[in-house]
Amino acid sequence: MSVVIRAAGLTKTYRGRRGVAGLDLEVEEGEVFGFLGPNGAGKTTTIRTLMGFLRPDEGRAEVFGFDVWRESVEVRLRVGNLPGELAFEDRMTGEQIIRLSARLRGVDDLSYARALAHRLGADLTRPVRRLSRGNRQKIGIVQAMFHRPPLLILDEPTGGLDPLVQEEFLRMIREVKEEGRTVFFSSHNLAEVERVCDRVGIIREGTLAAVEEVGRLPGRSFRRVRLTFDSPADPAPFAALPGVDELKQEGAVLSFRVHGDLDAVVKLAAGHTVVDIEVERPSLEEVFLAYYGEDGEER
């Protein structure tokens, strides 16, 4: 496969704030790549630099082989971009925004744009100033996708969307992948990244901490489990299971962490009458600590 996005030693600081430092990254054609990190980690700075909106201080980045700063026009011709902060003319309607974008890109057929808007429930008839954040986000997604670009670069695309619309958006991303196109999107939501991405880059304090295949993420993190039985169960067999720690018992309730898969836990619990089972996925910060300690050293 060819490399669509390549960054080598990419470094950017601006306005006295940390951006990204020494970022090395490759995104291959046809993959969905998640860029995962908490707010302020450097996700938006990376995306703005890849789009040619910010000039790198050191290193370089290419999109489809074009330098993101010197050849930014060539880059933008091939990219559909959803910025983290949308800035539409607030007197224009969604329909007017899409038509303007279509004229700029030489797109005559707006049927795909209207189909996307319908799927997202986007209101294209009202001025942007009268729309909620979620409805503005829907128009931004349509504007990024309607021309079927070979690469989508999306900054926190599900922000402001309700859960049902989020589900529809993730289906749309899967369809883009099935068409052989490439998606790079940032998120601080581990669950949505795991559901649609092939690989994920984890950025921490402006530095790329790890790049992993999504299937490997659960094995490096953990889940919190809460089991409620019909009567108190002996906690010792659960405490003895590989990967189980922080076990607590409160009457008929056992709670603990599990590193790795849950198969042994489920089989042991099946020997009792289970009233309820709760499994909580780790937070993004907990995933970071599963990879790296507080001092930044890999574990």
Rank of each mutant, 00 (worst) to 15 (best):
L25M: 15
L25P: 15
L25E: 02
E26S: 12
E26G: 13
E26H: 12
E26D: 08
V27M: 15
V27G: 09
V27T: 10
V27L: 15
E28T: 15
E28W: 15
E29W: 14
E29R: 13
E29D: 13
E29F: 06
E29G: 14
E29L: 15
E29N: 11
G30S: 06
G30E: 03
F33H: 14
F33D: 03
G34M: 14
G34C: 07
G34E: 03
G34W: 10
F35L: 13
F35N: 02
F35V: 02
F35D: 14
L36N: 08
G37V: 05
P38Y: 04
N39L: 06
N39M: 14
N39I: 11
N39R: 03
G40I: 02
G40T: 08
A41F: 03
A41C: 02
A41G: 02
A41K: 00
G42V: 07
G42P: 12
G42N: 02
K43F: 07
K43I: 11
K43N: 12
K43V: 10
T44Y: 09
T44G: 12
T44I: 08
T45H: 13
T45V: 09
T46D: 00
T46P: 09
T46N: 13
T46Q: 06
T46L: 15
I47Q: 03
I47S: 00
R48Q: 12
R48D: 10
R48T: 11
R48Y: 05
R48H: 13
T49H: 10
T49A: 05
T49Q: 06
T49D: 04
T49L: 01
T49N: 00
T49V: 08
L50I: 00
M51E: 00
M51N: 04
M51T: 01
M51C: 05
M51H: 01
G52V: 05
G52T: 05
G52F: 01
R55H: 06
R55S: 11
R55Y: 06
R55I: 09
P56L: 06
